[in-house]
Simulated scan of single mutants.
Amino acid sequence: MINKIFMLMTFIGVPLSVIGTLMHWSNIVLFILYCLTIIALASYMGRATESLSIVAGPRIGGLLNATFGNAVELIISIFSLKAGLVGIVLASLTGSVLGNLLLVAGLSFFIGGVKFKRQKFNVFDARHNSGLLMFAVIIAFVIPEVFSMNMSESKTLSLSIGISIILIALYIAALFFKLVTHRGVYQPDTEKAAHEEETPEWGKGRAMAVLFIATLVVAYISEHLVHTFEYVAESFGWTELFIGVIIVAIVGNAAEHASAVMMAYKNKMDVAVEIAIGSTLQVAMFVLPVLVIISLFFEQSMPLLFSWQELIAMVSSVLLMVVISNDGESNWFEGLTLLASYVIMGIGFYLL
């Protein structure tokens, strides 16, 4: 039933988005239409990555979901940088970290926990990811802010570029560790057996084709979505920070939201956790550093500097997730705790 609704939204939303753009409909109408269409397309991306996760395993499936889901946000961010909206880009990446760790993981833990009293996931992966989260957010994000207080803008940008290169290199090393040198080392035999019994909804070729086409369409819609931000902000009295942290982040991460919750409901917590935490790591260690480097080719460069509100929110989210996930188990109450934290931060950013 849900898949049929998303299919209807896609077949109506895509042509209406094109028509509305050509006929210059109201920016508010277009903003709503673009967001709903991107969310509908994200459902296809979620189904495709679920099929691929069955074929390739939970780690690669989660990685593919995070990659194609973050491709949406990367595309939106590049167009935003081109338009000079650096504040929205940084805010949307903050929102992505908060959204994945608190909203996506929270919904997954809560909905899965309502159906299953106790859900387990790979504790070794959880601890490995915890270390990377602490490094990426607490060290790589906080250090530039601290040192920039006594630096010129050019030196701050140089520091940001250096840190970005280190983040990308470490992220590639982390993938090599998980998918090559230590692939399957920490995977229990019960997981392997369960994985082998599943049948994917779509074959590998069809799933990859759906992911590719959906990403292209999202790229087209995202380019036009960016141009509605300023008008919508003025109309509703929203700040640039709120639009980035909440609105853009939710739309940009719709694929992860749908997929992770669906996996948790089916008790596939390894995939759900890999999507939520893996996507956060990819944003922090790959997407953001790449955007810092890409910004050098635009009129306005983007140093790796967040506001203190953004930094404290991200650090708090990481610490909470580390404490909750390090035992390799989840339940509905832990999910509710994460969701409550997201709502509190959302209210704060709205009133800021």
Results as ranks from 00 to 15, higher is better:
Leu101Arg: 05
Phe79Trp: 05
Ser96Val: 01
Val114Phe: 05
Val86Ile: 15
Gly99Phe: 11
Gly95Leu: 06
Leu98Phe: 08
Leu81Ala: 07
Leu98Ser: 10
Ala91Ile: 02
Ser108Cys: 11
Gly112Glu: 02
Ala105Tyr: 13
Ile111Gln: 05
Ile88Asp: 07
Lys82Cys: 02
Ile78Lys: 02
Lys115Met: 09
Phe110Ser: 14
Leu102Gln: 02
Lys120Phe: 06
Ser108Asp: 06
Gly106Cys: 04
Ser92Ile: 10
Ala83Met: 07
Gly99Ala: 08
Leu107Met: 02
Gln119Leu: 05
Asn122Lys: 08
Gly87Val: 09
Gly112Arg: 01
Phe79Leu: 02
Phe109Asn: 12
Ile78Pro: 03
Ser96Glu: 14
Lys115Val: 10
Phe79His: 13
Arg118Tyr: 10
Leu101Trp: 01
Phe79Ser: 01
Ser108Asn: 14
Leu102Pro: 00
Leu101Thr: 05
Asp125Lys: 08
Val97Trp: 01
Phe109Asp: 12
Ala105Asn: 10
Ala91Tyr: 01
Lys82Gln: 15
Asp125Pro: 12
Leu102Cys: 04
Leu85Ile: 11
Gln119Phe: 04
Asn100Leu: 02
Val89Cys: 06
Asn100His: 07
Lys120Cys: 12
Ala91Val: 13
Gly99Val: 00
Phe124Ile: 10
Phe79Glu: 15
Lys115Ala: 13
Val123Lys: 05
Phe110Gly: 13
Phe110Arg: 05
Ala91Arg: 07
Leu93Asp: 06
Leu103Cys: 00
Lys120Leu: 11
Val86Thr: 14
Leu98Tyr: 09
Gly84Trp: 09
Ala105Gly: 07
Val97Thr: 10
Ser96Thr: 09
Phe124Ser: 13
Ser92Thr: 09
Leu98Asp: 13
Ser80Val: 05
Gly87His: 05
Val89Asn: 11
Ala83Arg: 11
Gly113Cys: 05
Leu107Arg: 00
Ile88Pro: 03
Ile111Arg: 00
Thr94Asp: 15
Lys120His: 12
Ala105Met: 08
Phe124Thr: 08
Phe116Glu: 14
Leu90Arg: 04
Ser108Trp: 01
Leu85Cys: 09
Phe79Ala: 15
Gly84Asn: 10
Gly87Arg: 15
Phe124Ala: 14
Ile111Ser: 12
Leu81Phe: 05
Val89Glu: 15
Gly84Phe: 03
Ile111Pro: 11
Lys82Arg: 11
Gly113Asn: 02
Gly87Phe: 13
Gly106Met: 01
Val104Lys: 08
Val86Leu: 10
Asn122Thr: 07
Phe124Trp: 13
Leu85Lys: 15
Lys82Asp: 07
Leu90Cys: 05
Asn100Phe: 03
Ser92His: 10
Lys115His: 06
Ser80Asp: 03
Gly106Ser: 09
Leu101Lys: 02
Val89Pro: 14
Lys117Ile: 00
Phe110Gln: 14
Ile88Cys: 12
Phe110Val: 14
Val97Cys: 09
Ala105Gln: 09
Leu85Ser: 08
Phe79Lys: 06
Leu101Glu: 00
Gly95His: 09
Gly112Val: 00
Ile78Cys: 09
Leu90His: 12
Lys115Gln: 08
Leu90Ala: 11
Gly113Ala: 04
Ser96Lys: 03
Lys120Pro: 05
Ser96Leu: 03
Val97Tyr: 15
Val123Glu: 15
Ser108His: 00
Lys120Ser: 14
Asn100Thr: 05
Ala105Val: 14
Gly84Arg: 06
Val89Phe: 07
Phe109Met: 04
Leu93Tyr: 14
Asp125Val: 00
Gly95Phe: 10
Gly106Ile: 01
Gly112Gln: 01
Phe110Ala: 15
Asn122Asp: 07
Val123Arg: 08
